[in-house]
Simulated scan of single mutants.
Amino acid sequence: MPAASRRHFLSLAALAAAAAACGRASASGGGGKETGRIRYQGWAGQVTLPELAEDLGYLGDVKLEWVGNTISGPQDIQSAATGQTDFGGAFNGAVVKLIAAGAPVRSVITYYGVDQEAYNGYYVLADSPIHGPRDLIGKKVAMNTLGAHAEALLDIYLQRGGLSPAEIAKVEPTVLPPVNTEQSLRQRQIEVAVLGGVLRDKALAAGGIRPLFSDFDLLGAFNAGSFVMTDRFLDRNPETSRTFVTGVARAIEWSRSTPKAEVIARSVEIVRRRGRNEDVAALRYWKSFGVAATGGRISDQDFQLWIDWLVPHGDLKAGQVRPGDLYTNAFNGLGGAPSTVVPPSPSRS
């Protein structure tokens, strides 16, 4: 396996077996009664699509229950698989790995993607001697987690730059919380910072850094990550699941059709109201969730891209998984075509 010593693409065989065996993945009550709450992890200083959907009134009587924050997609979907939460979101390549390891989960909706406004950039200081893939040998590249979106795109960049597996193994992916990455770059503790969304635009506004490449440069626009739920939760709570997924789909379309200033203002209000002592300064740089498909509907290509990448690396066997087995659009009631988004109620919960 190329660069096997530094790959951390979810050592999940034992985890998946435990998830398949445990019975905690559903919060439904007895007698067939569905749950009215959905447990989840958030992201500090950010508003996730489910949080936006709830604030817009799109989740109806279904309530979100925040159990803490995460900085890692793989950790988030592991929590969902083992029943610590009821949904989690991650890069689709990490989802493929989790399901291939035997975890009884399925992707239900895309929640982030890559486009001209929403992308991860790989940034260096303005005076850095790094200008191409080969310059990264022996250098630290900081990202939020290993085995996910940022490391996968770094690997593609290095491969396209002609580096051998042995040379790629000398590049050092390094884990840092996203809120600390810019500062670490400016203090020269790392050589490259992976920055996305509001944190990227805030750093660019401060100046002194320049892009090396971005995931949009490499692959263009694409759906990048999805929320997963366990089969057990979906089976026991079909209407709750449908309300949740459709509500998130409506929030995606609301964010598309609403002026950015209004989306930002609402996000700031959500963060301030939840009272977690978070900095809202970066939220004013929000531009897009980057979801390419209407209502976040999932397609085979969203997973085939990463299956085709994982197989040559030895992380999957050819034919081990099929895209159609990894996801379902059955709970997304928004439909495959653009639909009218109902204006939210002015009331607040």
Rank of each mutant, 00 (worst) to 15 (best):
K260N: 14
R273F: 00
I252H: 12
D279V: 08
A261Y: 05
S257A: 15
N277I: 00
I264P: 15
A261P: 00
R242K: 14
V245P: 06
T240P: 08
E239Y: 06
V245Y: 06
E278N: 08
S288I: 06
W254E: 01
K287Y: 01
F244K: 02
F289C: 07
S255G: 13
I270A: 09
R272C: 11
S255E: 07
D279T: 09
A261C: 08
F289E: 14
G247Y: 05
E262W: 07
N237E: 12
K260Q: 14
N277G: 00
A251W: 00
R284D: 08
W254N: 04
K287C: 00
P238K: 13
A261L: 13
R273T: 15
V271D: 09
K260F: 06
V248D: 01
T243M: 02
R276Y: 14
A261D: 12
G275D: 15
T243Y: 06
N277C: 00
R274L: 11
R273N: 12
S267L: 07
N237R: 08
E253M: 13
E239I: 00
K260T: 15
A249P: 01
A249D: 05
A282S: 12
D279W: 04
V248N: 01
K287M: 07
R242Y: 09
W254F: 14
P259A: 15
S288M: 05
I252T: 06
R250D: 02
V263F: 04
K287L: 09
V245A: 08
P238W: 09
E269T: 15
D279N: 12
T246G: 06
V280P: 03
S255K: 02
V245M: 09
E253F: 05
S241M: 05
E278T: 03
A249G: 08
W254M: 03
T246W: 00
N237C: 15
S267A: 15
S267R: 07
N277K: 12
